[in-house]
Design a protein around this nucleic acid. Sequence first.
RNA 1: GUCCCCGUAGCUCAGUUGGAUAGAGCGUCUGCCUUCUAAGCAGAGGGUCGCAGGUUCGAGUCCUGCCGGGGACGCCA
Length: 677
Amino acid sequence: MREREAVALRDRVIADTHARPRQAFAAYPLPKLRALVAEALNRESGQTGLRPQLDFTDRQKLGGDLAIKVPELLKQGGAANYIKTHVPWIVQALSAEGFASIFAHVEAKGMYVNVRLTDRFLLQSLSSVLELERAFGFSDAEAARSVVVDYSSPNVAKQLHAGHIRSTIIGHVLCNLHAAAGARVFRVNHINDFGGFGFTLEGYRRWNDTFTADMSPNDKLLKLYAIRRSLERSAAHEGPLHTLAAEDKQIIDEYLEGAGSKDELRVKYETFVTASDGAFEQLEAGDPKQVAFWQELVAFSVAEFQKFYDALGVTIDFTLGESFYFKAGNELVEAALASGKAVLFTKELGAAAKARADQLLAEKSKLMTEPLHAAALLQIEKDIGAVVIPLPNDERLVVRRSDGRSIYATRDLGAIALRRRLFNPTDITYVVGQEQQLHFERLFKAAEVLGLVKSGDGHDLALEHLFFGFYVDAKTGKKLSSREGASNVYLLLQSATEHFARKYQDDPAWTKADVDETAKQLAVGSVVFNDLKKDMKGAVEISSDDLSVTMTAFEKSGGAYVVYAACRARSILRKFQGELEKPEALPDVELTAEEVDLILKLQQIPEKIVDAADQGNPSVLVRHLLDTATVYNSYYTHSPVLKDGDVRMHRLLITAAVCRALENALRICHIECPQKI
RNA sequence: GUCCCCGUAGCUCAGUUGGAUAGAGCGUCUGCCUUCUAAGCAGAGGGUCGCAGGUUCGAGUCCUGCCGGGGACGCCA
């Protein structure tokens, strides 16, 4: 993608944002209630800074729906004092006339003021769900934010590995959450189409002719990568040639003809590396032949990634490779060199850094122990000759190799600068595995040093690395290797689809098209759900040899459970076929504890969406949906909805609200509800 | 060695940012399909919140130190 296209797409994304349905967050029933309570307590106490806390409680267990306390007052004089001097007037204030239509009962219990909501308030709140329809859950809470989310980010000419898959799912849903919360969202796929590419260019030139005709372009790229890694291993191998692994030996015979000894191998390998570096230099310099060739190779890989995105149904608006940013990165380095913020790390600077390390060691500083000192010296030695940005704490970030070429840090800095210019964001969030924490920590510090972002409280752009745990092998608990990762998830999607299809294919009530559609929705849904339901920092287990183990894990994960609840609600409404009445037209009846619980669960959804977006943690919403489904599944078995009686329409309205709320929220989580399951 | 993540029921995880008697799902056991889809419902059992100190009226939650599991520590990305 070129800059001009990116600008046009950006403008389209902004226009789409403005066209989105959006409900004022403060107009939802619960935020409105919180504001009312806060206002009343501040007025009563003559203060302004009180932010009363409203916690949901179990009516059957504690007698109320909400427990209210005021942390600010509680901290002032401790619990005993709070109960004696504050609780009584809080009870008074909340029992006032103005709250009569909202609170049916106000009662002090220890440090809490427990309130029970009126049935009228609860029933009326259903209209926020029913009238907003597809817009329920959406709000303007983050309207002032403009968020760039960097996710998926695969490497061209390599397999999509497990980390990219989690990044893709989590990043995509995080974008949905921010969008639902009212932010401008720019979905960016930062593909690595530059680093290590010299090998690919040179390898393709050398060995393309030796590949068989049935290999797809992408197969060839993967093969080149395999050859390169194998040669790398062989060249670094300590013993003589015949002690190499058979597959590495075979690669040498096939691709480095005449390398009969270890020394010959090293020479030939070095020649290959030098030629590769040369090819990369030409590419960086903009050599038209190399650039055209490179573009062709990148296109092969990107087409392959697209297959995976299609299978998952995920969209990423801006596919911008490192190549898009590298000029900006180089310009940044030049400017930094001119201003002195970046320096050529000379022998003299190295000696000075060593002296500081020695001094810290002599002072027995906690920051510099014996092994740390040794590592620091080694690193100083390595960095001599490169261009670095000095960071606080005697750290350095290398931004240009000693041979003058850029590295990923250069391009990542360029990316920040360019994204600022292009998107003017308030946040850039990187959804990348935890193994890159150190890199991002240093990158963000360097961005501050360069003045790309303002540091401290007045910061104008929040850079955040949102990391997640790995897919790990269910048996060993170890990180899945790159090769296993992608093929596993492909297989998993495929076998999950077959698994779900098997449940319906023999049923005459199902057409083939219905079976396929439903099976795919359930398969994608369960993979996604399994990834999202836990806090993302933990590892997700996957079984590498027995997919049925992983499949059952998905069955148990609860995705189907939530979808089932929504389907049942929809099915009941289908059967009803009549007109729903308005909540205000319903006669007064006493709501059951389950109904109260359920209605309050629905009303929390808009807040949970905002919380999940703000915390960068989709599981906040997913778990709430699981809770909601639990209550509804229990509800319709105990309270037959379509049974004739006074409460039939009440139950129908609750069912309609559940259906709508779950569908909307699940869609934000990238889970579609089939018509029936 | 240094830094980061994790440690809560047999297993997988919550625990609303320091507050009520620590909660779910799965698994186990026991019931429920002439009544809107049993991918469901009801019930039982299951706990030294890794260990040891500390702060606090109050700690699973905050601080310090240990123990165990995983990860990072490249002029790769």
